[in-house]
Nucleic acid binder design. Structure first.
Length: 540
RNA sequence: GGCGCAUUAGUCUAGUUGGCCUAGGACGCCGCCCUCUCAAGGCGGAGAUCGUGGGUUCAAAUCCCACAUGCGCUACCA
């Protein structure tokens, strides 16, 4: 049996096992195999609670808060959700979590949408797309939260708290200083109803707090398994602020419930929030979704990614000339693997193979070098035309050519094969091809290659030869240059350098003959003449 | 402080039911080859006592316990 068929068999076996687990999970004995379900069945199995209600459709979401640009951590979360939705034919919902009005901005929202589109993460429901659960940003859903909050209050599952933020803060500090737990002490819980009513009538602001029930709450995480939290360690968290706006925990639960989200896949910084949310789902008499918490992405120093670690905004990668597919490939591999050997994985393969069962649980360190390498791989796989077109905006930005300049595009088309494997990001092309679009001044360090008896002679002789050529294509040019070198008894690697500097202005350039061909005889001759002049002057 | 999560080479990771692991692949690094420069490519190499200490077992990276370290949460931020 060859390797291929062995691999195939292994795949088949895996698939089969998955199938079995799925069957196991959706069967009626769900409750008796809780752990097996949480870890084994992965995302394919909707949470048992939803399952009981017969709701099987997969609905995933990405819910960024527009307090800044989309960073790579968020992008990865979005990608995983998108991949899962696409793989299993589910819906991918984009929801803007802007309950923190003071920190949210319209620009941030637009930028996030733009980055999502660039990465190719299209959403089935959300801003600009619409959907059955409109609106898809939290500021437009205030009444829904209020309604949920009211019902909790009426059912005695939440209560008014008249403590002022400053008071709470002071008490917390004191508690910590004295070594006590800084948890809210529930003092407002015991205010008699008449009193509460009176204070409310007086117009005293209050926050609504959730009354955390006794007992334990188990989070069944698809990546980590079951995690048990003691409710006694969860404080009566705030649902509604003094100004009536909802806090994150309330809003997220109400939205996920209303939008019928079946699987919540997010960063593991949310793990401690999860028991609170599960409690809320239950208080609202709603089946909770399945949860999966992704490990964070951290910098080389092990600290969470932030502006400190260089710019981690998705937009920055776009501007530098990273390709969306390379980003997606790289992001996917940050915490997930296809197998024990594959690194380059196209989007299609990702979609058909991605699953939470191969998501790891330790933090992933962002590695710029590897991203660069991967991007280079994707650039090398591009066709000439695609590459040339992709490069035009970068030329335009540097003022080398208009973006829609047909002639320039034509030139880039010929240059593409020469520079493709010399770039890591698209913007790398600019210094490589600049000499094709504008006159050059030799770099300081390169100037000495134009001076001196021998170098001048090379330039002179080569110029003569080039002039005599019938055809000015790269083969003829190569022949001429080699003949010149040989005639003068100089090694090619030495003889070509002055020409390179004369033509490109640099000691490093794309392949010489092809470059000269693209530049054209006239330009080449001019530049060699100029080099002779410049080098000759220096000599005297 | 409390609660939670994590811990395989510089990095991403494979390793899921203990033996096929003298720990596999990739990035990076080093060397050689190719070569008109730079790349790309080819070949080869160094680099991991699998956080530490115990235990279970004929056998542990894999199971159990403790400790250490890192990170997260502990907000009327999300």
């Amino acid at each position: 049996m060859d390797d291929d068929s062995r691999q195939h068999e292994a795949l088949l076996r895996n698939k089969l096992r998955l199938q079995v687990v799925i069957t196991l999970c959706v069967g009626s004995d769900i409750d008796r195999t809780p752990h097996r379900c949480a870890r084994g069945c992965d995302i394919i199995c909707p949470s048992p609670e939803l399952e009981k209600r017969g709701e099987r459709s997969l609905r995933l979401r990405f819910a960024p808060s527009p307090t800044g640009y989309l960073h790579v951590g968020g992008a990865r979360t979005a990608l995983y959700n998108w991949l899962l939705a696409r793989r299993f034919g589910g819906a991918f919902v984009l929801r803007i979590e802007d309950t923190d009005i003071s920190r949210s901005t319209e620009e941030a929202i637009e930028a996030i949408l733009e980055d999502m589109r660039w990465l190719g993460l299209d959403w089935d429901e959300g801003p600009e797309t619409g959907g059955d659960h409109w609106p898809y940003r939290q500021t437009g859903r205030a009444t829904l939260y209020l309604k949920a909050a009211r019902s909790l209050l009426e059912e005695g599952k939440a209560y008014r708290c008249f403590c002022l933020p400053e008071e709470l803060e002071a008490r917390r500090e004191k508690a910590v200083a004295e070594g006590r737990s800084p948890m809210y002490d529930r003092r407002c819980r015991s205010i008699p109803p008449e009193e509460t009513h009176r204070m409310e009538q007086e117009g005293r602001p209050f926050a609504l707090r959730f009354l955390v029930p006794e007992g334990e709450t188990v989070v069944r995480d698809a990546i980590r398994g079951d995690i048990t939290f003691n409710n006694a360690e969860i404080e009566d968290f705030v649902l509604l602020r003094g100004d009536g706006t909802p806090t994150y925990n309330l809003a997220v639960v109400v939205d996920d419930r209303d939008m019928e989200i079946s699987h919540v896949v997010r960063g593991d910084d949310h793990l401690p929030n999860t028991p609170k949310q599960i409690l809320l789902y239950r208080a609202l008499d709603t089946a909770e979704p399945a949860f999966a918490h992704l490990p964070m992405i951290v910098g080389q120093d092990g600290k969470p990614l932030s502006k400190r670690h260089g710019d981690v905004a998705v937009g920055r990668f776009r501007e530098e000339g990273f390709l969306p597919d390379a980003m997606v490939n790289f992001l996917a591999l940050l915490g997930w693997s296809l197998d024990d050997a594959t690194t380059i994985i196209d989007r299609r393969t990702l979609v058909t193979n991605f699953g939470l069962e191969r998501v790891g649980s330790k933090p992933a360190v962002w590695d710029d070098d590897k991203l660069l390498w991967m991007n280079a791989q994707y650039i090398m796989a591009m066709g000439d035309e695609d590459l040339a077109r992709a490069l035009m905006p970068f030329l335009a930005r540097e003022g080398l050519a208009e973006e829609d300049d047909e002639q320039a595009l034509e030139r880039m088309l010929s240059a593409a094969p020469l520079i493709r494997e010399r770039m890591k990001v698209l913007s790398d092309a600019v210094p490589l091809v600049a000499f094709l679009f504008r006159e050059v001044e030799a770099e300081e360090e390169a100037k000495e290659l134009l001076r001196g008896e021998e170098n001048q002679a090379i330039l002179r002789e080569t110029g003569k030869r080039l002039l005599e050529l019938d055809r000015f294509d790269s083969a003829s040019i190569e022949e001429a240059l080699r003949a010149t070198a040989e005639g003068m008894g100089i090694k090619p690697r030495k003889a070509f350098q002055p020409i390179r500097v004369a033509v490109s202005g640099s000691r490093v350039s794309p392949p010489l003959f092809e470059s000269m061909h693209i530049l054209g005889r006239e330009k080449c001759m001019q530049r060699i003449a100029r080099a002779l002049e410049a080098g000759g002057e220096q000599d005297r």
